[in-house]
Amino acid sequence: MIVRTLSEAVSVNWGNGVSRRFLLASDGMGYTVTDTIVAAGTKSRLEYRNHLEACYCIAGSGEVVNSAGDAFPIVPGTLYALDNHDPHFLVASPDEDLRLVCVFVPALRGDERHSLDSATFSHY
């Protein structure tokens, strides 16, 4: 059995926020669970070429924008899933941080960070 508290999770500053990673590849579960904070007022261009990700909003607000430009509001109680390695923008509202519980498959090593260069997508 694995039991971890937020203070024990691996904390990674990914550029526009912090990802607290509860489960990693080394835990042998096959997936990662994170508690992720996206800083208020940020816009992150992201793409996971090696992972699928589902995110469930537990606090704050923002939107996820797909490569076609369609924007989907994110508020507490909203889940979005990047089921096709979808390139996307993750935007936190200007007045509050966005907090997400995320699941990555396959699991992250733990040290991955985003490249937030506007000309390229990050690729885990």
Rank of each mutant, 00 (worst) to 15 (best):
E47P: 00
G30H: 03
L24M: 11
F22N: 06
S118N: 10
R99C: 10
L24V: 06
R113Y: 00
P76K: 04
R113T: 15
A119N: 13
F121D: 11
L23V: 12
C57M: 09
F89Y: 14
S19K: 07
V65R: 03
W14M: 01
E8L: 07
K43D: 10
C102I: 03
D27G: 08
T34Y: 04
D117S: 13
V64N: 02
L79W: 01
E8Q: 15
C55N: 11
R49F: 04
P76W: 02
E8Y: 03
T78V: 13
P73S: 04
N16K: 06
R4A: 12
R45K: 15
H123D: 15
S19I: 01
V12M: 12
L100N: 05
T120D: 11
N13P: 09
H88A: 01
R45V: 12
M29L: 13
D86H: 06
Y31A: 12
C57V: 15
F22T: 03
S115C: 13
H114N: 14
T36R: 02
N84E: 11
S19N: 13
F104T: 09
S61V: 04
D83A: 10
P87F: 03
A9I: 09
E8T: 11
G110Y: 12
G15S: 07
S44G: 13
M1E: 06
R21F: 08
N66H: 00
L46I: 15
S19P: 04
S118H: 05
L82K: 00
A92Q: 11
S44N: 09
R4S: 10
L116W: 10
G110P: 10
D83G: 09
R109Y: 13
F22Q: 05
R49I: 06
I58L: 05
G15D: 11
L79V: 14
A81R: 08
N84M: 06
V91H: 00
F121W: 05
M1L: 05
P94T: 09
G41L: 07
V18D: 08
V3M: 11
E96Q: 15
F121K: 00
E112H: 09
N84F: 04
G30V: 04
A81Y: 14
D111H: 12
T36I: 09
